[in-house]
Amino acid sequence: MTGAEARLSAEGLRLTYGTRRVVDDVSFTVRAGRVLGVVGPNGSGKTSVLRLVAGDAVPEAGSVVLDGRPVEGTSPRALARSLAVVAQDEGVAETPLSAAEMVMLGRNPHLGPFQRPGPGDIAIVEEALRRVGALDLARREVATLSGGERQRVLVARALAQGAGTLLLDEPTNHLDVRYQHEVLGLVRSLGSRDGTATVVVLHDLNLAARYCDDLLVLDEGRVAAYGVPDAVLVPEVIEPVYAIGVHRLDVDGVPHLAFHPAHETHGEPHEHLA
């Protein structure tokens, strides 16, 4: 996938809340078809970086360029046509919208203020739901769906937006292991099949290792490491950032990290696991 144009690039981003600098000199590039994982401990600035990219917050310094246009100054409507966001804990739990109605809201940036969705929009919504394997959930109310189903519906809404770039904030939160892999596998396939550029914030480093092309490791708002998982997920990088002992095993060519808290370092990791 080399040689593809940069869909999204961030340059020297900086953001301060009060006296706390939550994002400090963060730069990265995501090309079409690639998945960038943003990882780091709690409070390291992952969500803030995502908010800057989505235009939800204005950077003090630096800029985000999406499809050749600066995000700052782009109208929400124009931005929503090239950038889809699946936020963490959206207020979808209370709304009695059906899944199809929720996905139809993804057509919002394409419709005039008073325009009703037409047959074309209905076809797009249906295709989006089919693509995430949630067509059979179309009539169900979003509030009644399981966490994994809900996440798939939100990804379908992002697809219906027809945007080339996708931002996901911890899409695997509250999901059990199977759905974690299902949702990220779906995200991965969007990249390889449609050329969608994706930025995904993840807590779980092992999921990040499996599904991301590149990783951005943040520590107190700064970039601690940036590169392919194989280069980034090494004890020398992860141990100081997370303040925990790390042992790396490679399973099927994918880096896999085992953690051991500092006070338990008296025993050597079990080498036979590798």
């Binding site: 074309g120 076809a123 249906e126 299902e182 099949r193 969608t196």
Partner: peptide, 23 residues
Amino acid sequence: MTTTQGTGPVDVSAVAPPADVLG
């Protein structure tokens, strides 16, 4: 998971079927 062969982000040319699949 059922998927179809899509080429673009979403295939717009697909015509909405008469059945009310989406409810």
